[in-house]
Design a binder for these strands. Structure first.
Lengths: 249, 249
DNA sequence: ATCCAATGGTACAAGGCCATACCTTTGGAC
DNA sequence: GTCCAAAGGTATGGCCTTGTACCATTGGAT
């Protein structure tokens, strides 16, 4: 051994399970909601399909759904054309000054503790890396269409739908970079970030700036300009990180 | 829903478990070995400590150790100052042309299938991102010492120890970037890469080139030069990826 | 020579998770 | 109005995992 004190094995010797199977299932369903992949009022895949895809027994999956029902986040209807429906309106941005949102934000940030900094750094690595890789692939055809469609959707989104559309665009970049692992990790990390972002109001000046960056990003991606894609994404990410840190101090 | 055919939920709706608990424990122990964090002849932490850190029952952990013992990768001795010891000599580089190694490499690459490309891309994102973040932190004090020490160790390593020291340097960068998640993901992905690299011979010209890049990398990191750190790391990673792809075609 | 602490080895009962099968509800198709 | 397919709701038996306690072995300390 050549360790002296500091633990060089920490990166490997960490828990193999982050909780019960059903707790992890809860987290995954929460990701679907926080990422807006299933919008308010939308229907989740059927229990049998969800269980199959998460590789969890239906019994366990139902335990997870039960928790989220009890929190009022999901509603179920029986019978054909029934299913599990999302009831989720972030809407912390209406009728609140920066006070109320700030309270909740601090509460949630407190809960994340040390993982907050980790999350923001990890996000930067994934997102900037994905942008560069995506540009390197020079998206064309269906990929290019998807990027353009996502960009247009952010531009014409209602205020209440902006975060959802923003998430959709970023997730598209992560998926188009060619590495499923990057996409999966980004989905998880972005769900955490959204949990915080949902607490702070969306101000028009920020939104405009964000849209300029989105436009520049997609242009760089379609041009296959790696350096520019990376630079634009880095600034964009730094912007939201600064926004969060600002509200937290 | 606005999905049309393609599955936008795939990044979230993936298995919550990649296998049995004991299989995942096996993978973690294998990581320790493949990363060279516990060298040949070295002793693993005691069963009780391993179980604690992996958050796995000792029974399950012992199942995992048993598998690796049966493969001859681990040996156990009872009694005080006993323990579980690593018996692992990559050494595919002695007495083989590129033939034998190429066989085994292709076999292992086949086994990884689609995950190979994913692994190489994910590695690039993590490694390049970690380098940039690490430089942004301008490592000083203990961090700077650790980088210099790791660099010196690669420079003076025996041929049989070079890959281990190389891994140690890269892992140090990932850890010093400030995000435990990045370090953890990198450890996993690098263990996979090492499984392949162990099949191909280490040629002096490649080694020299690699060492030049290591030196430049550490210099950039200590200078706090983000762009340079990123560029050097990108070329370095592209080098080993090209090496692998070359042996595979 | 004895003791002891650290390590691997073993046994058992409780709880978690799963596969499977079946029941109940619902609304459209006919 | 009847039927049926698709969805949620329920029950059972078995394997996996855990927590806990205890046994066996070893080599240094005394």
């Amino acid at each position: 051994m050549d360790d002296r004190g500091e633990d060089r094995l920490a990166a490997v010797l960490r828990p193999v399970r982050s909780g019960n199977t059903f707790e992890e299932a809860v987290q995954r369903i929460l990701q679907l909601v926080r990422l807006g992949l299933v919008p308010d009022g939308g229907r989740l895949p059927a229990e049998r399909e969800l269980a199959e895809r998460l590789q969890v027994s239906r019994v366990t999956l139902r335990e997870a759904l039960r928790v989220l029902q009890d929190q009022g986040l999901l509603e179920t209807r029986r019978g054909r054309y029934g299913g599990t429906f999302v009831r989720y309106r972030p809407g912390a941005l209406v009728g609140t000054g920066t006070q109320a949102g700030g309270e909740e934000l601090r509460r949630r940030a407190e809960l994340m503790g040390d993982r907050l900094e980790d999350t923001l750094l990890f996000r930067e690595v994934l997102e900037v890396g994905a942008a560069e890789l995506c540009a390197a692939h020079r998206p064309a055809g269906a990929a290019a269409r998807r990027l353009r469609e996502c960009l247009a959707a952010t531009g014409s989104a209602q205020l209440g739908e902006y975060r959802r559309m923003d998430t959709r665009l970023h997730l598209a970049v992560a998926e188009l970079c060619g590495s499923p692992s990057v996409a999966a990790q980004y989905a998880a990390v972005r769900a955490s970030v959204n949990e915080l972002l949902d607490c702070i109001p969306l101000l028009p000046p920020n939104l405009l700036h964000s849209e300029e960056q989105h436009t520049a990003l997609v242009a760089a991606l379609l041009d296959g300009d790696r350096e520019r894609a990376r630079t634009v994404m880095r600034e964009h990410v730094a912007g939201t990180a600064a926004l969060l840190r600002g509200f937290l101090s």
